[in-house]
Structure formats: structure tokens, C-alpha cells
Design a binder for these strands. Structure first.
Lengths: 186, 186
DNA sequence: CTATTACTATACCAATTGGTATAGTAAGCA
DNA sequence: TGCTTACTATACCAATTGGTATAGTAATAG
């Protein structure tokens, strides 16, 4: 692996373990075995490095989500497709998604939040849009589509953070979808 | 307000806005208008300050949760009482609870996480215990009580972070409880 | 063969980090 | 009165922070 990629790889691990602010540039370059100008040559700044970590994979993933979340009259079907797409991305890149989800409940005035939220908010919008689009079908949502979207994502993300790396979690995902749509009493 | 309390108040605000690691001791004491030895006289270390922020109120709150979460044969009733207790605490101390919930999805190897998790895990345990105790009543939980507890807390906390400071959110809380137990399709 | 470009290291920068040694004041207690 | 305890400031500490000026090498393009 090239230095450019090693830097992203190491930074992703360290940020994930201890948080962006707790990790210094020096520790990253020391771990990789290069010097600081090497890092600054590729990524300009610490924030630039954080941005690069996400842009490596997540823009492609998001495009996939947008396609899967197109509402074609069958809400359950679209929600399933979207859910499995997100779950697959998590499996392919657990560190990246774990770091991403770290920012959902984090402080909103830090520099790093503002960068990461660019991608996080896109995913949230995709989900909200699906719920809103299916308004007609799910008449009983009663104008609380947004609330349902957020609740659904909260459950899904909490679930992925606990079991997202396991090999076979399809069964669990189905039960999550079922639980969300029909509650625990059915 | 005494310096001792001012320090906690200012630190709580700053930690909440930008995160524990992003805020320096100097900024805290400057904002309060005292010098560093004053802070270190009361709280020994930056982590000690963080700990003190939580111990000020949350230990009492947790005692309340433990009482409310006693399962007396009526799961819905206990879950309602516990939910409203948590919601009330959030209303009384939004900054404290927002900061607390910040750590749910955060990196797990940072010093500050380890401190805050002392309190966070207690709340989680209370909820899980309630779900497990009601196993007999809710036979259809099918040994997924833990999963349900986590999902429930994920939804509740996401909800509180969005609407927890509003004056009258009882209606919303009831709908959250209903949604969780009976799904969105009822 | 020359000039440019990509990449990397040494050595440095000012500013900030968490924390402290020393000393002082003010209040309460003997 | 005299002693102790609580509290606070000035001035300092070594270490680390994010970032850079300078210089070098290696490859590539003209």
C-alpha cells in the first residue's frame, strides 16, 4: 500500500478508536512511518485528511442509497432495499461507518462535525425522503414521517453498531424491519 | 453563584458545544474569570471536572429511574413511568443529558468516554433489566429483550435530542411508546 | 540533457496543552 | 491572640498541538 493510502488507513483506525480530536498528526505519521510533510502534501490539513477518509468510499455508497430508496409504490420493498444497502456498506467498511455514526449524537460546533455532517446529512435526507414519498401508502403516519425516519435510523444504526460486522445478520435485519412496522406485540 | 459551581456550569456548556477534547482548561477558567489553580483546587484534573459535572445531578436521577423501573406485573406501566422520568430529567437538565448521550455512539478508547460510561451504562442496565423482567408477560419477545431495550433507548434518546426541551411533549412520548409496542401500522 | 513535477525528510515555528510551585489573602477557630 | 484551613493569583513547566520553510531525491516529460 502507498503512503497516501496508509495514512488514510491508519488515521481511520486511530480516529475510530479515540476520536478525531484526541489523535495528533504526529501519532498518525509515526504509525505509518513517514514525516509530517508527507501527510500535508497529500491532504493539506488535519480536516482535509478527515474529509478524504470519507470521500474515499462514501460518495459511491450514497449514490447506491439514492437508487435503492426510490419509492415505486411499495414502501416495504424500498425500505428493505435501502436497509440492506446500508448494512452491506457497513459490513464492507465497518471502521468508516462506525466513525460516521459517531457524529450523529456528537457536539455540533466542532470543526470535525461540520465536515462529517456533509455526508451524514445526505444519508438522513435519503431516508426521510423515502418516508415522505410513501405518505399516501402509509396514511396512518399522520404527518409524522420525519419522526418515523429518525426513529428508524436510530434503531438501525444502534443495531449496526452492535451487530453490523457479523457475517449473517439478514435475519436480524428482517426482524428489525418487522419490529419497526408492526411493533413488539405482534 | 460560587466559583466552584460557575466552573461546572461553564464547562458543561463548552463541552456540550464543542466536545470535551476540543475545550481547553484555559478557556474554561478564562470564561469564568478565575485562574487555573482555582479549578484544580476544586477538581484535581480535567477528567475530575467532567466527573463532577455528572455527579452533581445524575446519581440522584438514576436512583429515581431504578425505582420507576421496578416491574410489578404491568410492563407498559413501568416503561411509561421510566420513560417520563428520563424525559423529565432531560427537561430539567438538557445540557447534562445532551452531553451524556453524546457518548452513546462515541469512540470507546478515549479517557473521557470511560468516565462518562460509568453513568451511561447504569441507565442502560436499568432499561434492559425492565425488559428482561417482563419476559413472562411479553412472551413474544422471543429472547430478544436486549435488542428491544437497545432499540427503545435509541429511539427515545434520538427523540429527546430533537424535542426534549419542548414544554409539552407528553403526547409525543405516548406516541413513541405506542409506536414501539405496536409499530407504525396500527 | 534539461526542466519540471511528485514526493519526502530535517528542522523548525508560535501557540496551546494539562498541570504545578510558590505565595498570598481572608475567614474561622483555638 | 495565633494557627489552620479554604481559596486564589502570578508565573512557570515540559510536552504537544497543527503546520511550514527549506532542501533534497527520483522520476518523467520536452
Amino acid at each position: 500500500m502507498e503512503n497516501k493510502d496508509k495514512l488514510i488507513d491508519v488515521a481511520l483506525t486511530l480516529f475510530n478508536d479515540r476520536g478525531y480530536q484526541s489523535v495528533g498528526i504526529q501519532e498518525i505519521v509515526d504509525t505509518v512511518g513517514v514525516s509530517k510533510p508527507t501527510l500535508y502534501h497529500y491532504y493539506n490539513s488535519k480536516l482535509g485528511l478527515l474529509k478524504a477518509i470519507f470521500e474515499q468510499h462514501i460518495l459511491g455508497d450514497i449514490k447506491r442509497y439514492e437508487e435503492d430508496a426510490i419509492y415505486n409504490g411499495d414502501f416495504t420493498y424500498s425500505l428493505q432495499k435501502l436497509t440492506f444497502a446500508i448494512s452491506n456498506s457497513y459490513k464492507n467498511n465497518p471502521r468508516l461507518y462506525h466513525l460516521l455514526f459517531t457524529y450523529i449524537l456528537s457536539s455540533k460546533d466542532s470543526e470535525d462535525y461540520k465536515v462529517v455532517n456533509l455526508y451524514l446529512s445526505k444519508i438522513y435526507n435519503i431516508v426521510v425522503n423515502l418516508f415522505v414519498a410513501s405518505k399516501v401508502q402509509n396514511g396512518n403516519m399522520n404527518n409524522r414521517e420525519e419522526q418515523f425516519s429518525y426513529s428508524y435510523l436510530a434503531m438501525l444504526i444502534d443495531y449496526l453498531n452492535r451487530h453490523g460486522e457479523e457475517m449473517n445478520n439478514d435475519q436480524f435485519l428482517y426482524s428489525l424491519l418487522h419490529q419497526f412496522q408492526f411493533g413488539i406485540n405482534s
